[in-house]
Design a binder for these strands. Structure first.
Lengths: 121, 121
DNA sequence: CGACTGTATTGACAATCTTCGATATAATCT
DNA sequence: AGATTATATCGAAGATTGTCAATACAGTCG
């Protein structure tokens, strides 16, 4: 909390904080982290991950569809987004596709999110 | 991992998991939690919170604007979203509006996010 | 083979989000 | 009062996202 001009003496056209204090996060880092948050920013995706977490490795698309308030193409769409984000993987057995969580990838996201949020509150 | 039908014996038109295993998260809870993630799902908002966190209580809009890659109306827009989400507050002093983090609100979000993510990975 | 089943993709539409110029509001200074 | 500064809001344009019917694809069964 150094490098600060007293609010009382502040004059028009000046900045209260030194430049260095304000810019500790690059736009690229902010973009990457916001993507980490965004993938969790949809109720259907949260429910999918929750279900996969509770049924390690043996949930197929039709099971998810039966429990979710959206149609099958939408389920597949969100599964694809989660897969492209690396949070889940799948294995085909016959007609069925069994999805499961990539725990290491989720843990990495969780660490990044935690590292950002902890100093804030 | 009970209540499970062996994949091998699975027949067409059946479900692999019992209903109760799949539906442990209500759509309403999922919606609320996804909103918690969404407010962090934008690079400018992440940078704003980061700057406020490092300069407790004495950052005005023009300072933010100077450090961010967007124009002043956009900064005000994101500040409004953060304020409506309860994550920040502001205090006017003369011409300037000084923004600061609502640490308790951030802590609540952090706890909710952590409680969701921890069992996943 | 042909019929059927589970899943993925395509394409289109609607809804939402982001951005910024223009403008409004409010406080300060001369 | 008029000029200036900081911030907020409005309104429109463009980009992104979410959804689903239709369709394609792949594996199974008779």
């Amino acid at each position: 909390m150094t490098n600060r001009i007293d609010i009382q003496e502040r004059t028009l056209g000046t900045r209260c904080c030194g430049d260095t204090l304000l810019t500790h996060m690059t736009p690229a880092a902010a973009q990457e982290l916001s993507d980490d948050f965004l993938i969790f920013g949809h109720p259907v995706r949260l429910q999918i991950l929750d279900m996969l977490g509770r049924n390690g490795g043996q949930v197929c698309v039709c099971d998810l569809e039966a429990a979710l308030p959206v149609k099958q193409p939408t389920v597949s769409h969100h599964l694809r987004l989660l897969r492209e984000a690396g949070l889940i993987d799948c294995e085909r057995k016959g007609l069925w596709a069994y999805y499961f969580i990539n725990h290491a990838a989720v843990a990495r996201r969780r660490a990044a999110i935690r590292a950002y949020m902890e100093p804030l509150g």
